[in-house]
Design a protein around this nucleic acid. Structure first.
Lengths: 242, 242
DNA sequence: TAGTGGTCTAGACCACTTG
DNA sequence: AAGTGGTCTAGACCACTAC
C-alpha cells in the first residue's frame, strides 16, 4: 500500500512529511514483529517501492532511526534492526567500560506508589500504582550503580522477578518481548546526592559519600512515556558519560 | 572556485565527500569573517553555484552545522550564523533556567600548570603552561556553579581579566573575537564530588555537600582541542540537563 | 510577487560485501 | 557478478516570509 498521495495530502491540514510517514511505518513494522532484532529490513529501493516514495525519501526516513540507534546500516550488506542489548547499555555503564564487563542483578520487584517525580514523568497521578524495580550494576564484579525503575502497574501486568531474570534483568527486553514495545531513552537529568545507608552498603562507598544520580524517561518510539528510571552511581573510580 | 572535481577526486585515496567539503568551506567562511554572527549566508542555491555542487549536497553539508547549532535555518528567510551567545549557554545552566536569568562573574585568570586530566584533554605534556580561568555562575542572583577553564597559554597570548570581562565573561566570545576561533563543546563527563572549603563558601552549600562535576572539551570546528573546562554545580535546587 | 528554506523525485555512479 | 548502502545530480513543487 502506498502512502498518502500528494493530492490527498493537500487536504490534510496537519499532514506529516512523507519521510516521517516512512519512519512511522518502519517503527510499526518493528513493533509488530515484521522484522525482529538483528534482522535485515528490505533494501531501501524495495522499501521505496513498497511505500510508493522515492529512495531518497526512504533514506531520509531511516536516518532518524539510525541516529536513535534503532536501526544499524552496514554498507554493502543492508539495514538491520539493532539488537535490544545495545539500547541502554551505555547509559548504565561508566565511560570506557565494555558491556561484556558488566552484570545486572535484580534486587527487588514490587508494587509501590508513584512519587512526585515519577508521577509527573509517567503522566500518572501522584500515588498511582507503579511497579518499582531495583537493580544493581556491577562492572568487573565491583558494584557500580543502583537503578530504580518505575512503570505504570496496570500497563505491565504479570511482570515479576522471574520474567525479569529471564530477560537477563534487561527491562527493555521485557517490554519488547512480552509487550511488543520498543523504547528509547530520553534526555538524562543529573544530580549529585549523598549516599544513604543502603546505597553505601550495596555500592561499597562511605556513607555520605558523593553519588551521581542520572534520571531519565524511556519512551516508546511514538513518544508515549513508559519507564522512569533513576540511576545512582559512584564516580570515584569511573567517569560517567552519556 | 569549484570544489574538487569528480575525476580529480578519484585519484585521492582518502577523499572527503562533497558535503563534507561544503561544511569545511562554510566553516572557513565563518572563521574568516566572511559571514559574521547573526548574518545570513548566501542562499543554498547560490552556495551550490559557488561551490559547484548541487543544492542537495549543499543542504546536506549545512545540516551538520545546523545540528551543532553553528547555523540557524529560518524558512522563507535564509540560513544564519548563530549568535555565539547561544553556544554554551545551556551547558552552563540548570534545566529550565533561561539565559537571561543567569550571570557570569570572573573570579580569577592566571597562568598555571596543566594537571593530568587537562594535559591529556588538550594534548599537552603534563605541567605545561596553561591559562586557568575561574568563573562563577549565578542564576537569579544565587550562586549555582564554579567553572575552571584551561587553555594552552602560548596559544592565547594576551588574554587577561580585562579582555574576558569585555566579552561578558563568555570565553567562546574571546576565542572568536580575538582569535577567530569558533568552538563547539564536546561530550560532557560527569562525576559527583564533595564540596571543598572554597566551593562551599562561594556556592553557599555546606562543606562536604554533594556537587555535580561536568567536564568537557571544547574543540574548534576542525576538531582541534581548545579549552578544557570543569564545572562544579549544586543540584540541590536545580537539575542539570545536557 | 519574489526569494527563501523544506520536501520530493527518478535517476546516476561509487564503495563495499558476499557468493 | 549481484546486491546493498553512500553520494550526488538537476530539477520540481510547496510553505513561509517580506515587501
Amino acid at each position: 500500500m502506498a502512502l498518502v498521495s500528494q493530492s490527498a495530502r493537500q487536504d490534510m491540514p496537519s499532514r506529516q512529511p512523507l519521510y516521517a510517514q516512512v519512519r512511522s511505518r518502519v517503527i510499526a513494522g518493528i513493533e509488530q514483529g515484521e522484522w525482529g532484532a538483528g534482522e535485515a529490513l528490505p533494501s531501501e529501493i524495495e522499501l521505496a517501492d513498497r511505500f510508493g516514495v522515492s529512495s531518497g525519501t526512504v533514506r531520509k526516513g531511516l536516518d532518524s532511526l539510525v541516529a536513535e540507534g534503532v536501526l544499524v546500516r552496514r554498507q554493502g550488506l543492508g539495514t538491520f534492526v539493532a539488537l535490544a542489548d545495545d539500547e541502554w547499555g551505555r547509559a548504565e555503564l561508566p565511560a570506557g567500560a565494555r558491556a561484556v564487563d558488566a552484570s545486572l542483578e535484580l534486587l527487588a520487584c514490587a508494587r509501590s506508589h508513584a512519587g512526585e517525580e515519577a508521577a509527573v514523568a509517567l503522566g500518572l497521578r501522584r500515588g498511582a500504582a507503579v511497579l518499582l524495580i531495583t537493580r544493581l550494576v556491577r562492572v568487573l564484579g565491583e558494584p557500580f550503580a543502583l537503578i530504580d525503575s518505575y512503570v505504570a502497574a496496570d500497563r505491565f501486568e504479570g511482570v515479576d522477578a522471574r520474567r525479569i531474570r529471564q530477560a537477563d534483568c534487561k527491562l527493555h527486553r521485557v517490554w519488547w518481548r512480552e509487550f511488543g514495545l520498543r523504547v528509547v531513552a530520553g534526555e538524562p537529568q543529573f544530580r549529585a546526592v549523598l549516599a544513604g545507608r543502603d546505597e553505601s552498603r550495596l555500592l561499597g562507598v562511605p556513607a555520605d559519600g558523593p553519588l551521581l544520580e542520572v534520571a531519565r524517561l524511556a519512551a516508546g518510539l511514538d513518544g508515549q512515556a513508559v519507564e522512569w528510571s533513576v540511576l545512582r552511581c559512584r564516580t570515584d573510580r569511573y567517569v560517567y558519560r552519556v
